[in-house]
């Protein structure tokens, strides 16, 4: 059985990969943005830590997309 790469399987993978990539990017922003927000509240930094957290979260999300889904 060498039909592992049948077209339907590929398109199903594609749909799943789209949701996975979206999930990584959004969860990156939410989780590390939230941590940054907590740090903001704690040290009273006026939003700098939230911004750093969100940007770092996106960067990690992109990293995971490349790592997990990249060729």
């Amino acid at each position: 059985m060498t039909d592992d790469q049948s077209p339907r399987r590929d398109s199903a993978r594609g749909a799943d990969q789209a949701y996975t990539a979206l999930g990584y990017l959004i969860s990156g922003m939410l989780i590390w943005g939230f941590v940054g927000w907590l740090v903001d509240r704690w040290l009273d930094l006026g939003g700098i830590a939230t911004a750093i957290g969100v940007v770092m979260g996106v960067a990690l999300g992109v990293y995971l997309v490349v790592k997990r889904l990249g060729a």
Binding site: T20, G23, Y24, S27, I31, M56, L60, Y63, L64
Partner: peptide, 16 residues
């Protein structure tokens, strides 16, 4: 990098 990415993997697989 693991402590940083594991929360994301967890959220994407087990929550989303």
């Amino acid at each position: 990098l693991l402590p940083l990415v594991i929360p994301l993997e967890f959220a994407s697989t087990f929550l989303f």
